[in-house]
Design a protein around this nucleic acid. Structure first.
Length: 594
RNA sequence: GGGGGUGUAGCUCAGUUGGUUAGAGCACCUGCCUGUCACGCAGGGGGCCGAGGGUUCGAGUCCCUUCACUCCCGCCA
C-alpha cells in the first residue's frame, strides 16, 4: 500500500462502499457539531466529506485543526443516506468514517481564505500566490492552460511541425520593444538581451532547411503592463513555414484554432472561415486594427456633410475646413432612450480626453428632423443625405466625433465598445475571429516625422519582387497580418523578406545604411545570402488564447506566478539588489540616485 | 511619464453634516450542539483608519504632500 493515499479526493463512489481507504489533502472546511464533525478534504482532484464522532479518541485532535492543514486520514467508505447525498460534488454519494489521522503539514493563521467566493486584492493574491492557486477557479484555469498547451503541441506535430528550442540569451535588436538585458561576465561591458520573440532564430531554422517549426516560446519585453499584457514575459505559439504564401499560414492557424476552441469551449464560433479585413478598412469601420466583430456597430465617415451650406453646425464646420474629419456611429431605434443615456455617453467621451460626442436622433412628423442638442443645425435635405450615407432609419441616433483622424479613430473605437455594452449588443457567448491583412510597410513617426517600419522590418512587401516600386514607401503594403478574436489581438505574423538586396533597400528607406543592417542583423542577413527559402509564419499569444477560453479578462488569472504592474514578484522578491562581488564580477557599478 | 479608482481588524467591507469608547461578515480563541455540506447558537481577542503635514475645541471624515495597489493613455517591430 502507498504511504500517503489509496485514492484521490475526487474518485470515490458508492462502488467503493465498505473499503478501507486512505486520503491525503487539505482541510477545505470543517463543520463541528460538538459530538459529530464533518470535514471536507481537498486535493487537486476533488473534495471528499469525512466524518468522525466523539467515540473516537482522535475526535478532540481533529476539532483543533485549522483550515488548510494538510492531513492524511484513513477509514471506511460509507454510503450516504439518500437525503444526505451532496449532488454538487463527484464524491457526494459517500463519506469516509475517519479512524486514523496523520498531520502532514501544519498551517499558520491564513492571510487569505482559500474556500471562499470573495474577491481579494491583487496584492494579497500575488504575495500568497500558492494559497490563491488552491482556489477552485484559478486552479482550474491553470489546469486548462496545461491542457491547451498539450493539445496545441499534439496538433502541431500532427500537422508535421517540429518543435525546437531557441536561445534565451541572445542579442539586442534595435527595432521593437525595450529589451531585458543581461550583463556578460566574460565580455565586460557587453550585454545579452532576452528574446522579444525568437524572430530571427525561426527564420534561421527555415534557412537551415527544417521546413516547418513551432515552439511554445517564452518572450520578454520590458514594457508597461495592461490587463491583457503581463509585464516582462509571456508565451507565444511561435510558428514558421517554408515555401508558403499568406494563405498557407492562414489555413494552418484556422485549422488549429477551430479544433482548439471547439475542444475547450462551448461558445459558438461565428465564422467557419475567418473573414479578412484590410488594415485600412478596419481603421475606418472600427477605428482600430483589432476589431471586436461581435459588435454590430460600424463607423461611417461624414466629413462631407459638414462642407454643406445647409448644415450650420459651425464648430465642426470650422474644424473640417482646417483639415479635421467627422465620423459617426449609428445606434438602431434608440429614440426612447432617456436623455441621461446620451449625456452619459457624451460625459464618458469627455472623460476619455476627447471633446465629447455630439448626437441627435432622427424624427419624422411632417418632415424629417433631428432631436437633440445639435439637431437644429441640420436641414431636412442634409439629414436625408446622412440617412442615405449611414443607412439609418427614423428613430435611430447618430453620434458624431470631429477632430484629427487618429483622435477620431481612437475615440470612436472605444465608443463603439462602450455604446454596444450599454445597449447590450454584444453576444458574450461567442468567438468572432478575423484576419486583419495588408498592413502598410511603413508609417510616419509622429514625433520625429521620419519614415519607420510600421510592423516587422523583416516582412515581404506586396507585389512582384523584381519590380517593387519604392518611390512612395507609405503606399507600400506588406504581407503582414494579425489574427483578432473578440477584439483581442492574438497574434501577428508575416511572409518574410528572404532577399538580402531587397532588404537593404527597405532598411535604407527607414534610415538604416547597408552597414547598419550588416552590423545589427548580421546573423540573419548573412544567412539569407546563402540560399534562403521563401518563408513566413505567425505567433499567437498563448496567454491570451487561454484567457479567451477561460472567459477571463485579466492575464494574471491564467498565469501561475505573474508579476505585479510594477514588474515585481512580491512573493519571490524580484527584482532584488545584488552583492558587491556580483557587481564587480560583471564589471558593473550602480549609480546612486541623486 | 500622464490621468482615473482604491487604501479602515488576518481577509472582504460599512462608517451620515467633522462630534461619546470606530462597526459587520468570514478567519482566529473559548463554551454549547450527533447529519452538516457557506452547519447553528453564545462569548472573546484583535485597529498607528496607508504615511507625513495642516485646518479645527475636536479629523477615519475637510485641505496639502507622499506611498502602495489597480485600470487606462503613452509604450508594446
Amino acid at each position: 500500500m502507498k504511504k500517503y493515499r489509496t485514492h484521490t479526493c475526487g474518485e470515490l463512489t458508492k462502488s467503493n462502499k465498505g473499503q478501507k481507504v486512505s486520503l491525503s489533502g487539505w482541510i477545505n472546511k470543517k463543520r463541528d457539531h460538538g459530538n459529530l464533525l464533518f470535514l471536507d478534504l481537498r486535493d487537486n482532484y476533488g473534495l471528499t466529506q469525512c466524518v468522525i464522532d466523539k467515540s473516537n479518541d482522535i475526535f478532540k485532535k481533529i476539532e483543533k485543526l485549522s483550515l488548510e492543514t494538510v492531513i492524511k486520514i484513513s477509514g471506511l467508505v460509507i454510503e450516504r443516506d439518500i437525503e444526505t447525498i451532496n449532488k454538487n460534488i463527484s464524491t457526494g454519494e459517500i463519506e469516509i468514517k475517519i479512524n486514523e489521522l496523520d498531520i502532514l503539514g501544519k498551517t499558520k493563521e491564513l492571510p487569505m481564505p482559500v474556500f471562499s467566493d470573495q474577491e481579494y486584492s491583487e496584492e494579497i493574491r500575488l504575495k500568497y500566490r500558492f494559497l490563491d492557486l488552491r482556489r477552485k477557479k484559478i486552479h482550474e484555469n491553470i489546469i486548462l492552460r496545461s491542457k491547451v498547451i498539450a493539445f496545441i503541441r499534439n496538433e502541431m506535430q500532427k500537422l508535421g511541425f517540429l518543435e525546437f528550442q531557441t536561445p534565451i540569451l541572445t542579442s539586442s535588436s534595435p527595432e521593437g520593444a525595450r529589451d531585458f538585458l543581461v550583463p556578460s561576465r566574460l565580455n565586460p561591458g557587453k550585454f545579452y538581451a532576452l528574446p522579444q520573440a525568437p524572430q530571427q532564430f525561426k527564420q534561421l531554422i527555415m534557412i537551415s532547411g527544417f521546413d516547418k517549426y513551432f515552439q511554445i516560446a517564452p518572450c520578454f519585453r520590458d514594457e508597461d503592463a495592461r490587463a491583457d499584457r503581463s509585464p516582462g514575459e509571456f508565451y507565444q505559439l511561435d510558428v514558421e513555414m517554408s515555401f508558403v504564401e499568406q494563405e498557407d499560414v492562414f489555413e494552418v492557424i484556422e485549422t488549429l484554432f477551430m479544433k482548439l476552441f471547439k475542444n475547450f469551449s462551448n461558445k459558438k464560433i461565428i465564422h467557419k472561415k475567418f473573414p479578412k479585413i484590410t488594415y485600412e478598412e478596419s481603421m475606418l469601420k472600427y477605428g482600430s486594427d483589432k476589431p471586436d466583430l461581435r459588435n454590430p456597430l460600424e463607423i461611417i465617415d461624414l466629413t462631407n456633410i459638414f462642407e454643406r451650406d445647409d448644415v450650420k453646425f459651425d464648430i465642426f464646420k470650422k474644424l473640417v475646413k482646417n483639415g479635421s474629419i467627422v465620423r459617426s456611429l449609428v445606434t438602431k431605434n434608440t429614440k426612447d432612450k432617456p436623455r441621461s443615456f446620451f449625456d452619459g455617453i457624451d460625459k464618458w467621451a469627455k472623460e476619455q480626453g476627447s471633446s465629447g460626442l455630439a448626437y441627435f436622433t432622427f424624427e419624422k412628423n411632417d418632415q424629417i428632423s433631428a432631436k437633440g442638442p445639435i439637431g437644429k443645425f441640420f436641414s431636412e435635405m442634409s439629414l436625408m443625405e446622412i440617412i442615405k450615407q449611414t443607412n439609418a432609419n427614423i428613430g435611430d441616433t447618430i453620434f458624431l466625433s470631429c477632430g484629427k483622424k487618429s483622435d477620431v479613430e481612437k475615440l470612436l473605437s472605444v465608443a463603439r465598445n462602450k455604446i454596444a455594452e450599454e445597449l447590450n449588443l454584444i453576444d458574450k457567448d461567442s468567438f468572432s475571429f478575423c484576419w486583419v491583412v495588408d498592413y502598410p510597410m511603413y508609417e510616419i513617426d509622429e514625433i520625429t516625422k521620419k519614415i519607420k517600419f510600421s510592423h516587422n522590418p523583416f516582412s515581404m512587401p506586396q507585389g512582384d519582387i523584381n519590380k517593387i516600386d519604392l518611390s512612395n514607401p507609405l503606399k507600400l503594403k506588406a504581407y503582414q497580418y494579425d489574427i483578432v478574436c473578440n477584439g483581442i489581438e492574438l497574434s501577428s505574423g508575416a511572409i518574410r523578406n528572404h532577399i538580402p538586396e531587397l532588404m537593404y533597400k527597405l532598411f535604407e528607406i527607414a534610415g538604416y545604411s547597408k552597414n547598419d543592417v550588416n552590423n545589427q542583423f548580421s546573423g540573419m542577413i548573412n544567412a539569407l545570402s546563402y540560399g534562403a527559402p521563401p518563408h513566413g509564419g505567425i505567433a499567437p499569444g498563448i496567454d491570451r488564447i487561454v484567457m479567451l477560453l477561460a472567459g477571463e479578462k485579466n492575464i494574471r488569472e491564467v498565469t501561475l506566478f505573474p508579476m505585479n504592474q510594477n514588474a515585481q514578484d512580491i512573493m519571490m522578491n524580484a527584482p532584488s539588489e545584488i552583492s558587491e562581488e556580483q557587481l564587480k564580477e560583471l564589471n558593473l557599478s550602480i549609480k546612486k540616485k541623486t
